[in-house]
Amino acid sequence: MKIVGLESLIFGVDDVRGAARFLVDYGLTPVDVSDRRGRFEAIDGTAVVIARQDDPALPPGPVPGCRLRKTVMGVADDATLGAIAAELRRDREVRRLPDGSIESIDDSGFVIGFQLAARRPFVLAGEISNAPGGVVFRPINSLGVPPPGSVIRPRSLSHVVYFVPDVVKAEAFYVNRLGFRCTDRFTGTGPFLQPGGSLDHHTHFLIGAPPHMHGVEHFTFHFGGPSEMITNGYRFVEKGYQAFWGPGRHILGSNWFWYFNSPFGCHIEMDADMDQHDASWQPREATVSADNSQTFLLKMRKKWYPGPGIPENGDYA
């Protein structure tokens, strides 16, 4: 099944205006925003959609406290759309919506939708490192650090992380029914999952958790590279948003990360430079711990040289 990845995530919120400002400050482009709803797109058109939590058009979340109401995936062709509908109709309702997409529910209670992938192709070089002996270099006189005021935009909706009460059952649904592959696994926690039409290390990560945590841990967009992502994160912090963990780099998936609190009842992440794998990749297994999920964690040092008003040991004093 050629599911190519996440197309949009739909949230019900209690403060549309505040959530809209949050997403714009994160870097997304507002499209059709009103007091009741709004769509916020990355460069390729993948998006977060928000609506007032009492909007009757919103499907229910898996549990009352969960603000994520629907996860929409893009598929490569009509054949895949038909195959998914036929597969899911074997044991559950599948609705065809007026826009041609289909809607159903996964085995953990998350409403899922499938539509023909509508991502806009674009060409925009990612971050390039000037490494002695390397093959690809940045153009001469171009800068590695994004200059102040430069526009930084998320490129594509990357992944969503669910807390699920029965992780074995949840994984089986995506693997056996929708053709996802496990790329890596945290023992006793859950799998990183890649759909059949994507090379990304994961578009979904499942975390087994007690029923009262059922919901979403985070979601994220890919940025053009670590420098861009971290610069965007510092700008976000300067606007008053609350960082949670990062910036750092994960081991499984190699993606750079920075997590922030959000008005969506879950974290939002910024990520960059995730590994890509094909079917020849052998999944690794690791125990979950901070040591196994961050290869390094960066900390900004405001005072780094001895000087007036700064103790001899700088920040270490």
């Binding site: 209690d14 505040g18 606007k239 008053g240 948003y241 609190n261 959000s262």
Partner: peptide, 15 residues
């Protein structure tokens, strides 16, 4: 120890 606001001073729901 997890910090709770989503934006500076924003610790409450909309109501």
């Amino acid at each position: 120890g997890a910090p709770m606001a989503w934006r500076r001073d924003a610790y409450l729901n909309a109501e």
